[in-house]
């Protein structure tokens, strides 16, 4: 299991780096799909098969398809030579610093922790994690769930209005 974790980590990090390093936009879109697969692997290692399937279905199967489609329609392959633009360098340094700080904080806080609720791994495997996720979405987390749905609805209406213009 540990070996798999490191394999997935290497794949995820390398492919995420390649997304911003390769010049061809379609190749970088393919690397982002590889990255999604590595993340799905993490979910499976965490016994979250439902999330893994959703990761592939929604991100690799739907969102990345839209990205690829847009790249093909714009025909970006013809662009030669990168545009070098450094005026956001200060902002990017601040962002990297914050991210590094967060990683250090999390690494310090982490450690051997036991699950706190009644849902231990054995219970989850017995009922099936899909049922438990569904139960939580409609009871304990129903408010954030509905807020997210309204956000999506607003986005749909917005996209429709922009497309009509």
């Amino acid at each position: 299991m540990e070996a798999l974790f490191y394999i997935f980590s290497v794949i995820a990090i390398v492919s995420a780096l390649m997304v911003i390093l390769v010049k061809n936009p379609l190749t970088s879109a393919l690397y982002i799909i590889l990255c999604f697969f590595a993340l799905a692997g993490f979910y499976i290692l965490l016994n979250m098969q439902f999330l893994a399937a959703m990761q592939i279905m929604v991100y690799a199967g739907a969102i990345a398809v839209i990205i690829v489609l847009v790249i093909m329609l714009l025909n970006l392959a013809k662009i030669k030579g990168a545009i070098k633009d450094f005026h956001q360098i200060v902002i990017s340094i601040i962002a990297i610093g914050l991210l590094a700080l967060e990683v250090i904080l999390y690494l310090n806080a982490a450690g051997e922790k036991k699950p706190t609720g009644i849902y231990t791994n054995a219970v989850i495997n017995k009922i099936g994690n899909t049922q438990i996720i569904g139960e939580f979405l409609f009871t304990k987390y129903v408010f954030p769930f509905e807020v997210a749905s309204i956000l999506l609805l607003v986005a749909v209406i917005g996209a429709y209005i922009f497309a009509k213009k």
Partner: peptide
């Protein structure tokens, strides 16, 4: 026999598109 069998099938069928799209491009 995975407990999300049908989702596994749907997830894979949604990937079939890439072969066609990448091949065409």
């Amino acid at each position: 026999n995975v407990n999300i069998g049908i989702l596994f099938v749907l997830a894979l069928s949604s990937l079939g598109i890439y072969g066609v799209v990448i091949g065409g491009w």
